[in-house]
Design a binder for these strands. Structure first.
Lengths: 344, 344
DNA sequence: TTGAAAGCGTTACCAC
DNA sequence: GTGGTAACGCTTTCAA
């Protein structure tokens, strides 16, 4: 088991021995404790650098009670929104001195061993993004006093949540389509039971009916491109008179799938039918789609989420909090423009 | 700082006290050491369950020297290949009892603090996928005896590597296009200096020239959709006589970008020009693209990568190894079909 | 079959 | 300013 090529890693004790000082002195010197004399500190720093010393974060955790680790529970990567979220989380957590323990990626519930790992590695907090309402990770954390922040998802209990104002998303998109003169709307729903998707659809429907139009048809959808594609095919198969003139996919990936199906069926987007989505993923802005979308303020969501998490980790006792961030409408070419320029 | 709602977590010591036995007995009982009597073991197990005991993996690491953590250094998410890889890595590592410490996501070099974290958290090994040749993570690991396996990337030194046979990828695609009667080929290059992309292009070019055709033009590309799009625009702008009749994007995302640009310019794919890619990402198979691609055997790559990593972690002293896995040609609609059915 | 004690690497507390 | 010691939670000798 011994590796002759790599001498035992330097430790506080080994440095102390070589420097002829006590371990506690080394520990203090390395962390720039003000009461260590400059000379000693310099000498120890030099020694440490020479020996390639790296503090053992795990040992430090043992005594400090802080691991510097944040658990990340991620949704299905079929929706690029989650990977963009992951990217933000990694970068922003690192900037704050935290590392991410990636525990789960996918749509299913998390398994026992994974939930256990959350506790075994003593994560200081947990970021949960999975759209599944039945996230076991959340209850495990709650039961063990591990702070949790949900991102893009409502907390049933025992957790704070940061999300986009999904109701506003639906409303804003409905307003846009209404202003453009659309009269027959339809919605492609997300996975059943996911709060985000339900709210978006609700906001949309509410606004359309408030305008005195018939309630939009709600087509079964899901969480990936294929689901949107299927919905798009269903729409394209409708007799012309029954076909909606505008389609709202509650997530961009759904809307993109729908666009692909519509176009394949020979329909023009936005010529024959306008399509809009929500999330603001990068792929939706690209040439074949140029999807009009209500973008989530991803960077801010992660930032606020970490704020909440770190405050709790820092010991602040605060009630669970729900932060709603306003997103931004991005008008692109997938939807007909409003007749008048005036739009709130 | 004390949290009254959550009593101090149970420890081996606290269980020992409550059970009236020694800590060592508890430790052994919980890990099913055969020499603990069934009664005692049962009693301790019951107590542990009741107290919601979770072993502290960090403390265990301190004595065992194994953290059960694998560092994951990921490439830019603009290319979905890396997120698909991440998904595989998480799932497969979990199945083997390991957790992933997500250290870096992006194309840039990894910063000092991140590289340090790799050592501080005592990862047992490291999986590196970043396409950047100048991966500092690798040298940091090498210098500290941390086993490293590169996936989809060649190791310069001090690491094993698992990759797809990229040369074969280029060759296979060239063969396909040649068989389909294409005569003027072009390649959209990847990021300069990335072995994967270079090999694919080399294999392609070699085969085309071997067939007695002029060497394919090599267009500057990059690592994302935008780069492919730009290349596609450049191709579309060419006078008809100079325009290639087949285009190889060294990664799917590039090829997709090119397709988008070509079609926007009014060209038909594959009517006017065939497009092929490599990687086999999910998005490339979807309706607007249906991209003919040489797919990397992602699952197997991750699996073999973990094999190599865990063998080394287990103490095996083996020379650095390079594993080349054969990929699979997926024929779809983005490229004209071969004239004759016969194709190796 | 079980217990006691040492030790993993670090920090914190209390002396000096 | 610096040193000693205890403690974090666990596993692993070594004894009994």
């Amino acid at each position: 088991m011994e590796d002759p090529q790599h001498p035992a890693r330097a430790t506080v004790a080994s440095l102390a021995r070589r420097a002829g000082v006590a371990a506690s002195t080394v520990s203090r010197a390395l962390r720039d404790d003000p009461r260590i004399s400059p000379q000693v500190r310099a000498r120890i720093a030099a020694l440490a650098a020479e020996a390639g010393y790296t503090p053992n974060a795990l040992a430090r955790t043992l005594v400090s009670g802080r691991s510097g680790l944040i658990g990340l529970v991620l949704g299905p990567i079929e929706n690029p929104f989650y990977t963009e979220l992951m990217q933000q989380a990694v970068v922003q957590a690192a900037a704050r001195g935290y590392r991410l323990l990636l525990l789960h990626v996918g749509s299913g519930p998390i398994d026992d061993a994974t939930a256990a790992a959350l506790l075994q590695y003593r994560v200081d907090g947990c970021l949960i993004t999975s759209a599944e309402l039945s996230s076991r990770a959340a209850s495990v954390c709650a039961a063990n006093g591990v702070p949790v922040v949900m991102i893009n998802r409502v907390a049933r209990e025992h957790a704070s949540a940061v999300s986009c104002d999904n109701l506003a998303a639906g409303e804003t998109l409905a307003d846009l389509l209404l202003a453009a003169g659309h009269r027959r709307m339809a919605v492609i729903a997300g996975n059943p039971g996911t709060s985000t998707n339900i709210e978006r659809a609700d906001g949309f429907i509410r606004r359309v009916t408030a305008a005195g139009l018939p309630a939009p048809a709600v087509l079964p959808g899901g969480g990936d491109h294929a689901a949107g594609y299927a919905a798009g095919q269903a729409v394209a198969a409708l007799p012309r008179a029954e076909r909606p003139d505008a389609l709202f996919g509650v997530s961009d990936i759904l809307a993109m799938g729908a666009m692909d199906a519509l176009r394949e069926a020979g329909l023009s987007v936005p010529g024959d039918i306008s399509v809009v989505g929500a999330d603001g993923i990068a792929a939706a802005g690209r040439p074949p789609y140029r999807l009009t979308s209500y973008a989530q303020p991803l960077e801010a969501m992660v930032s606020r989420g970490l704020d909440l998490l770190l405050a709790r980790i820092g010991g602040a006792r605060m009630p669970d909090e729900r932060v709603l961030l306003r997103g931004q409408l991005i008008r692109r070419a997938s939807a007909r423009l409003p007749l008048e320029a005036a739009l709130t």
